[in-house]
Write a protein that binds this DNA or RNA. Structure first.
Length: 491
RNA sequence: GGCGCUAUCGUCUAGGGGUUAGGACGUGAGAUUCUCAAUCUUAAAACCCGGGUUCGAUUCCCGGUAGCGCUACCA
């Protein structure tokens, strides 16, 4: 083991340690974010460690998908490790723990029964006979090749109380007698999660372990391992879990793609909005602020702000995203500069089969910025700017509320004349079209609605004059003439 | 079953021995506007239950209940 003498003033080092058994899950992403916030807030070191000791379930594809997710979040890390490359360290540590008599060999065959049933009568603590096996016999059986698991020799019968102060949950204690003799090494010689994790945390001089609350009770075991290793344990801080509306822990199996961060990315969430949303789940700056930039989050982050109850991510079958996440995303979109939004939305239009020039897109962007909640909404909000031919619409939509086809036709004919002769800028069009309405003896509404439908192909669209300007005179005139023809078909 | 953790509007949360229990999302109504959106105003909506401590508990303590987690040679 490396230098085991940490000082209380050692540098802050935190780690995010996902096991690559699938895509990056929103709960994991949140754990990563809180670790990152803690690191950056305290000018510490952020470490990414892939806990990939479970060869059965780990895949390289998962590793890639985790990187993909993290890259999208846009949060960095300073050091990177793979647990599978540190196997020797773990084995050596296990050997040292055993040597110090903090662990013993258990030759009992692996437990295969239904664990629920075996737990029904009470907690299993250790396999009788194995804890007290004489050293010589244990050595002999091991030398003879008999498989064994290495178990921690949890202190018993001395009333020992295990204690630590959690950064979120406060003082924690548990009777050592109630902790089972957990495994350190499996009978195939591979380290368990508990061992590998603690050995690496010690070796990497992790100062704060920030992880999901599902590890809260595991921390007592980890305390014991650190003791066996002869190092001071790090500080612990557990985060409340993210749960589904039914209260169960978010899981890939039960809840599907809604728990994958790539689902949010693909739906057009902004990473900063997603991060903002996740931070607000189980944490509060306590000042009623909700919309926050990464810098603001970093500045405001403290463990005191972390809530202790699980947080529900509110999705349904029809709507996979929490309404608050969507709202925050809209807020972040509105906060974007036109340049940036325009650049983000470009690939989305490309995917949808539109190929707007950057200039045109730049002109369209301000018209849709306040009208979209997700980036992908941009296509349905602005497609009419980029098509050659409007998709057919119901000509009846051209007729204003209190009017008839004849009025609509007069409006369009008047509009056609105005558009043909007026300078094509916002203010001129505004003035000329309002005057035209007045000359027809109608209000702005009945004047603009037929025009809007004619030009956009639908009733709900961005403001008319801006739209006309972006579309350009020729396109507007063409579409208005087409609308007039469509109107004829009604009569 | 054992152990641990948790409990404020539907959801995310603030608060805390005496408050009209605050904000936000969502929902309803209204205002504004050329539609939509945005914006503004407004309404409905919460302290799990029972004991105790106290002049007074939603807040502190205990119990119950419920939920979650751990209870694997998974992580």
């Amino acid at each position: 083991m490396p230098d085991p003498a940490p000082s209380s003033s050692r540098a802050l080092r935190v780690r995010f340690a996902p096991s690559p058994t699938g895509f990056l899950h929103v709960g994991s992403a949140r754990t990563f974010i809180f670790n990152w916030l803690c690191a950056r807030h305290n000018h510490g070191t952020m470490i990414l460690r892939l806990d990939d000791t479970d060869v059965e379930r780990n895949t390289e594809a998962s590793v890639q998908s985790i990187f993909e997710g993290l890259r999208w979040l846009g949060l960095d890390w300073d050091e990177e490790y793979r647990q599978s490359e540190r196997l020797e360290l773990h084995r050596e540590a296990a050997f040292q723990i055993q040597k110090k008599n903090f662990a013993y060999r258990d030759f009992t065959p692996a437990h295969t029964g239904d664990s629920e049933q075996s737990n029904a009568q009470g907690a299993w603590l250790f396999n009788p006979g194995m804890r007290e096996l004489r050293r010589e016999e244990s050595d002999r059986r091991a030398a003879a090749g008999e498989p064994f698991a290495l178990r921690y020799r949890v202190p018993r019968g001395e009333g020992r109380v295990l204690r630590f102060t959690d950064g979120v949950y406060g003082p924690q204690s548990k009777l050592a007698d109630e902790v089972e003799d957990f495994a350190l090494l499996r009978s195939d010689g591979m380290p368990t999660y508990h061992l590998a994790s603690c050995v690496d945390d010690a070796d990497l001089r992790i100062s704060h372990i920030i992880r999901g609350q599902d590890h809260l009770t595991n921390s007592f075991k980890h305390l014991l391992i650190f003791e066996g290793l002869g190092v001071d344990p790090p500080q612990f801080a557990h985060l409340p879990l993210l749960v589904a509306p039914d209260g169960t822990k978010l899981s890939k199996r039960r809840h599907g793609p809604v728990v994958s961060v790539t689902t949010y990315r693909d739906a057009g969430f902004l990473p900063q909005a997603f991060v903002n949303f996740l931070c607000l789940l189980g944490w509060s700056p306590k000042n009623d602020r909700e919309f926050m930039t990464l810098d603001e989050l970093t500045g405001a982050f403290t463990f005191e702000g972390v809530n202790r109850a699980n947080a529900v991510v509110n999705f349904t079958d029809t709507d996979p995203f929490d309404p608050k996440a969507v709202w925050l995303n809209a807020e972040h979109i509105r906060a974007l500069r036109v340049d940036d939004l325009s650049r983000l939305v470009q690939p989305i239009f490309e995917q949808a089969g539109f190929h707007p020039s950057p200039e045109k897109l730049h002109a369209v962007t301000p018209l849709i910025r306040e009208r979209i909640k997700l980036l992908c909404d941009a296509v349905s909000a602005a497609d009419f700017f980029f098509v050659d031919q409007l998709v057919p619409y119901d000509p009846a939509e051209l007729i204003p509320q209190k009017g008839d086809a004849a009025l609509a036709l007069r409006v369009l004919q008047t509009a056609e004349q105005v558009l043909a002769t007026t300078p094509f800028d916002h203010d001129s069009l505004d003035k000329a079209l309002r005057e035209a309405a007045a000359s027809l003896g109608i209000k702005a509404g009945p004047m603009f609605q037929p025009m809007r439908v004619a030009v956009c192909g639908r009733k709900n669209a961005p403001p008319l004059f801006e739209t006309l300007v972006v579309l350009g005179r020729e396109v507007c005139l063409t579409r208005i003439r087409q609308a007039e023809e469509r109107l004829q078909t009604l009569a």
